[in-house]
Amino acid sequence: MNIGEKVKALRNERGMTLKQLSEATGLSTGFLSQFERGITTIAVEHLATIADLFKVKINYFFEEERESEPIVRGYNQPVIHQLNNMIYKQLSRSPQDKKIAPKMIEIMPHEKRELPTTYPHQGEEFVYIIEGILTLVIEEKTYQLYHGDSAHYFSTINHNWDNETNSIVKFIVVHYPNDY
C-alpha cells in the first residue's frame, strides 16, 4: 500500500470526506484525490499535518507491508539464491508454511552448450515459460518450450532444464511438495 492509499484508508476509517480533509489541511480536494490515487506526491510537512490530524506518527506512512500480507510485488521479488547461470526468485511471501513453492527462474545465456545431467527428486513439478526458449529434458527426450508453453510432470523421473540460446530464459516453476 502506498502513502496515498494509507491516507485514504485512515480517512475512510474515520468517516471523513475529501472535502473535510481538504478543510482540515488547507490542501485542495483535487490535489488530495490525486495523492490518494498515487498520481502525485506530497511534501513532508503536509504529510506531517495529516499524521497529526489522524493521530499517527509520520513513520506510519513509511512502514513496509507486513510479512503476513500474501502479496509479493514484481519489483520486490527476493532472490533466493544464484546457482551457476541461474537466478531463483521467490514468488510467495511465506512459502515455509505452504504446500507449494512457486519460484521464477532466470537462466542467463552461457558459452557451455552441454546439457546438464538429469536427476530425480520427490514430488511433482510444473513449469510455465514467460520469456525465451527453455530446453527441458525428461528421461531421454528433449523438448523446446516457448513463451506461454508449460509442462507438468512427476519429478521422480530423471529431468532437468537449461538455456541453449543467446537470450535470457524466464520461467515459473512450482514444486510439490514444497522444497523451500
Rank of each mutant, 00 (worst) to 15 (best):
I50H: 02
E67D: 08
R66M: 06
S94K: 12
R73W: 15
I58C: 00
I58H: 01
N85I: 05
R93P: 09
G74M: 12
L47F: 01
S92H: 13
I58V: 08
V72S: 06
K57Y: 01
I71Q: 03
D52Y: 01
F61L: 00
S94L: 12
E64H: 09
S92K: 07
T49N: 13
L91K: 11
N84P: 05
M86W: 09
R73M: 12
Y88H: 07
I58K: 00
D52G: 02
L91F: 05
R66L: 15
G74R: 13
R73T: 03
H46R: 08
N85F: 14
D52L: 04
Q82Y: 10
V79F: 06
L91Q: 09
I87M: 06
L47R: 04
E69L: 14
V56L: 00
E67A: 12
E67Q: 15
N84F: 12
N84D: 13
A48Y: 02
S94C: 10
F62H: 04
S68P: 04
H46N: 14
N84T: 06
Q82G: 10
L53I: 13
E64N: 13
E64Q: 12
H46S: 15
Y60R: 02
N59F: 12
V56A: 01
Q82D: 10
I50D: 01
Q82S: 08
H46W: 09
H81E: 11
Q77A: 11
N76C: 11
Y88V: 10
L53Q: 02
G74C: 10
I80C: 02
T49Y: 00
F61N: 05
R73Y: 15
I71T: 13
L53H: 14
S94W: 06
K55V: 06
G74Y: 12
F62I: 00
M86H: 11
L47N: 05
F61H: 05
K55F: 03
L91H: 08
L53E: 02
K57H: 08
Y75N: 13
L47E: 03
R66F: 12
V72E: 12
A48E: 01
E65G: 01
V56P: 00
P95A: 03
I50C: 02
E63G: 01
I58W: 01
L53M: 06
V72K: 12
V79T: 07
R66D: 15
I71D: 02
T49Q: 14
P70Q: 07
V56C: 01
E65L: 10
M86A: 12
L91Y: 12
L83R: 11
Y60A: 04
V72Y: 14
F62L: 11
P78S: 05
A51G: 03
R73N: 10
S92M: 10
E65Q: 12
V72F: 11
S68C: 11
V79H: 04
I50Y: 03
E65C: 03
L91R: 11
E65N: 15
L47T: 09
K57P: 04
E67M: 07
L91T: 14
D52P: 01
K55M: 09
Q77P: 06
I80A: 08
E65D: 14
Q82W: 06
P70W: 08
I71H: 05
